[in-house]
Amino acid sequence: MNGIITRNVIRVVFIVAILFSIVGCSDNDENNTTPSLTSTNVVEVVFSPSGFGDLGYNDIILTGLEESRKRLGFDVMMHVPASVEDGIAIYNKWAQKTAKDERRLFIFASNQYESALRNSSVRPSDANSSVLLYETHKPIDGVYTFRIGMYGAAYLIGAYTALTNKDESDYKAAVLAANPFDRNVDGAAQGFRDGFIEAGGADATISYISDRDGDGYNMPDEAYALCTRLYESGHTFFFPVAGGSNKAVYQFSRNQGVYTAGIDGDMSAYSGLMNCSLVKNIGSATKDFIALWLDKKEIPQHQDFLWDSGYVNVIYCHDWKETDAQGIETFKNNILGKETEYEKSK
């Protein structure tokens, strides 16, 4: 475990270095002074309230932003608000300003802002200002949107998990999802369950940390308690799809010695009992979008990036290998068809 902790610390130090290298960063906009900008292209980002340093979604976006900034030469301002409401307030102030000699892009780097943005009529009034929201499955007027679908990758992890435990006739897994309203969360949950059952797993229960729309992503205590209840009912593998709450699931894995899978990035540093990680290459998607925006290329108002996009994949953790799962090729070949079937059902 010492090696795992060391890798985690190194990664956090790397993230802190990026934070200091980017133009502006604040978790309290009222106390934030506007930094000196040197470019006529300015990207302003509001992250989810969960912040940085967990190797997950926000960290991956941050790394992509820094790589893109160095290569393409634009300025970045970042905000890590205390709540979704604070994030929307930052956006409202941004939208009220007018771009004069610059082009501006405002990024909502989490679909936790989706409901508030859909219900808001606030949009920038000038042609030089654009808005992007991550991870929604439906277009929003006046906003660029895209989604990295997880069904296909989760289907593969579900199948792999069942195949590598096929000697256990009553092997039960549990999916811990943030809430029942997030389409992306649903895709991952259903994908894992379908792959697990089709590969011979006994059961894959889908349980929700919260029953409220937009909630469940930063509720580690509730997530840990849910793990405890599921473990006591015989579930011995946990697949979390709950943002910042995932860390509680990884902690439970370490404490109780049960297996788990990671999501968003390579989460193997969090548990030596992790077989796979579902990796969303959100940093690459961010870099590609910004490059098109800077070049003033035509960008679709909404885009769905699925298994064949290259923006999502599965990596095997620690000593686990794809070849450990006899028959996994059949399931890999089924991914596109199963994902298409799922997408049409929604």
Rank of each mutant, 00 (worst) to 15 (best):
I4M: 14
I5F: 10
I5T: 11
S21M: 09
S26N: 06
D29H: 10
E30R: 13
N31Q: 14
T34A: 10
T34Q: 10
V42I: 14
V42S: 03
V43Q: 00
E44A: 07
V45K: 00
S48M: 13
F52N: 03
L62N: 02
L65E: 01
E66M: 07
R69T: 02
G73R: 09
D75E: 09
A82Q: 15
A89R: 07
Y91R: 08
N92G: 15
N92I: 10
N92E: 14
E102H: 10
R103F: 05
L105P: 01
I107K: 02
E114R: 06
S125N: 13
N128H: 14
T136W: 04
T136H: 05
K138P: 10
Y144E: 05
F146T: 00
Y151P: 02
Y155A: 00
K166L: 07
P180W: 05
R183M: 10
R183P: 06
F196M: 12
I209F: 04
P220W: 09
R229H: 06
R229V: 15
G234E: 12
F237V: 14
A242R: 03
A248S: 02
G257K: 05
A261F: 03
G265R: 00
G265F: 03
Y270D: 01
K287T: 13
D288E: 13
I290R: 02
Q301N: 12
S309N: 08
V312D: 00
E322D: 06
E329R: 15
S345K: 14
K346Q: 15
